[in-house]
């Protein structure tokens, strides 16, 4: 860990000002950033603590949705009565992640910005295009057990590791961002994270000095909410594959199927075509298979992670079967 200055702005304007320069990084819960600083993966000269900016509230919006402050802790969000009643997929996803102690510190905005768990990213003596552009990718020919099968590039096969954002993607939530030079902009969470392309150093659309202020959920819908996380041990492990599903069946046909996937890509994976395929159809094993085909159409394994392709297909089928009460 390198020496760094610690700054605590009291206003958003001041926070913008402090975080625009390249040598600064904003910190909220610090559950990911501090570990990376100890490993010297992250080496900010200034750490800008945004915990004095409020932004902890969870409140209803004018159109019946819910606005979750960027500094609301994961524990607060998962325990919020409205989240539990109307958006259980979000509570379930959060509770499937990390440990109680980490969730007590982790925040909404920070969790969206969580960095990959790729082994080569966290080891500064190994090549990694995300950490050090142009240095190469150790994972492609290395240990790629945890890595992506969708949306990869020759530069990077890392995954976005979080759970909360996968549920937010299924919910079609919006990320509210305060920018230094304008007022506020809103980005659908499905567009917030980026695919690696040839700039894997960019995880998401945030520009320098921008600060996430909230995540807004649309009006709740009546549907079954499931979050399924597949992993080797039953807690404190990142997903091999996860599925967030908001599914409703009416009169024997699927009326809604909003699905998002974790563990498969550099971002929570949402494919609008799945919903189009599933809605209006009677649930069946064959239909879920077709959905799997569509989801994994462009999938590519890197040896060690080939298993994720059949695993994603099977998990999708299991979740859809449970959500639609179909025996397969």
């Amino acid at each position: 860990m390198r020496p760094f200055a610690f700054q605590r702005p009291d206003s958003l304007a001041h926070a913008h000002e402090l975080t625009v320069p390249e040598d600064a990084t904003a910190v909220a819960g610090g559950t990911n950033l501090l570990d990376l600083m100890k490993l010297q993966v992250e080496t900010p000269e200034r750490l800008v603590d945004i915990n004095r900016l409020g932004m902890t509230e969870i409140q209803e919006t004018a159109d019946g949705g819910l606005r979750i402050g960027a500094l609301a802790t994961n524990t607060a969000t998962a325990n919020d009565d409205r989240v539990r009643a109307d958006y259980p997929v979000l509570a379930r996803a959060i509770l499937a992640g990390a440990t109680q102690q980490l969730r007590n510190r982790a925040t909404t905005g920070g969790n969206l910005c969580q960095r990959t768990r790729c082994y080569y990213f966290t080891n500064i003596d190994q090549p990694c295009n995300k950490r050090e552009p142009g240095s190469g990718c150790g994972a492609i020919d290395g240990i790629a057990h945890l890595h992506a099968v969708l949306g990869t590039s020759p530069s990077c096969i890392a995954t976005y590791p979080g759970d909360m954002a996968v549920a937010l993607s299924a919910l079609d939530a919006t990320v509210e961002i305060a920018s230094p030079d304008s007022d506020e902009r809103s980005v659908p969470v499905r567009d917030f994270h980026l695919l690696p392309g040839d700039t894997p150093c960019r995880d998401n659309v945030l520009e320098r000095g921008e600060i996430i202020t909230a995540v807004t959920l649309p009006r709740p819908v009546k549907a079954k909410h499931l979050y399924r996380k597949v992993r080797e041990r039953s807690s404190y492990a990142f997903a091999l594959v996860s599925v967030a599903a908001i599914v409703a069946v009416e009169d024997g046909v699927i009326a809604r199927a909003d699905l998002a996937f974790g563990g498969l890509a550099h971002k929570p994976w949402h494919d609008a075509r799945l919903s189009e395929l599933l809605v209006g159809e009677a649930p069946s094993a064959a239909l879920f298979d077709k959905a799997g085909d569509l989801l994994l159409e462009g999938a590519r394994g890197y040896g060690e992670n080939d298993f994720k392709i059949p695993l994603a297909r099977r998990t999708l089928a299991a979740v859809m079967a449970e959500a639609t009460e179909t025996e397969i």
């Binding site: 768990r117 080891n123 150790g138 020919d141 290395g142 240990i143 057990h145 080797e232 492990a237």
Partner: peptide
Amino acid sequence: LLFDPVDGHLVNCDLAEYHVPVNRD
């Protein structure tokens, strides 16, 4: 323990990535 096939370094070298059973297991 997972060893890199290229240079033999141990890749999963912390308790988040080397999976001992947790309470729930």
